[in-house]
Write a protein that binds this DNA or RNA. Structure first.
Lengths: 119, 119
DNA sequence: CCATAATATTCCTTGACACGTATATACACG
DNA sequence: CGTGTATATACGTGTCAAGGAATATTATGG
């Protein structure tokens, strides 16, 4: 199951991760909140654990699962160059809109003026 | 092909996206840089275009593909809660290490002292 | 020990999708 | 218009992973 991206491609696994972000949960709690058959939960948790997304600790018959940050940080790291890309584009758009701003001092009624803030 | 996460689960598609982040490219350029058979490139680009990751413009026989930001921004948005999670944890680790810092003024040789910066 | 609760694993089936190969379409230029 | 170049699509195939049902494992308390 190669990469972290394949792991989070599965919607149920993303749901589980989103649940765990607030606090640790037992298998049964996840099962109920996501209305998902128990074997499914266990199997997805197995995958998540093997990939380092979560870790479990034993509490009587229950197992409590909690998030580990590293794998999602990898995803975040992969996104970094793209973030630079799109912020550059937003800047370009800003400049473009700013140029659209003033030019036409045509004496039309100018019913509405969408005022834009300066960066 | 449901979600943006499934799209970027494919390694070759991620490679293509990473290529396009610097500048737009033709199919042939992608083909050569990634040493990937041309039909494969075209097919992945098809998927990426249908999902809104890229757009193409015609230039003679070539088609130039360039990035569109929205889908990856979705991924970024999904990561937001987790970022809060792990920065909280880093803070906790910092505090923990800081507490380890001073306490033992035992008169051992104290050969090495790993000095840590203050936040 | 036994009964029960909580979780994990196994087996099977099914569908999706990535890949290769072959072929089709589109465009340019002599 | 025919040839070459660039890109797209169609088809057949193998793989792999998710889902469901049944069962196994582990722990608890009486």
């Amino acid at each position: 199951m190669e990469s972290v991206f394949e792991i989070i491609a599965e919607p149920n696994r993303r749901a589980i991760l989103s649940l765990l972000v607030s606090s640790q949960q037992s298998v049964g709690e996840i099962e109920r909140q996501l209305r998902m058959p128990q074997p499914a939960v266990s199997k997805h948790l197995r995958v998540l654990r093997d990939a380092g997304f979560v870790e479990s600790k034993v509490d009587a018959q229950r197992r409590l699962y909690r998030l580990k940050p590293e794998p999602l940080q990898q995803v975040d790291a992969w996104l970094a160059p793209f973030r630079r890309f799109w912020s550059a584009h937003l800047d370009a758009l800003e400049r473009h809109l700013d140029r659209m701003e003033e030019p036409p001092p045509d004496q039309s009624t100018s019913v509405e003026k969408k005022t834009r803030r300066k960066k």
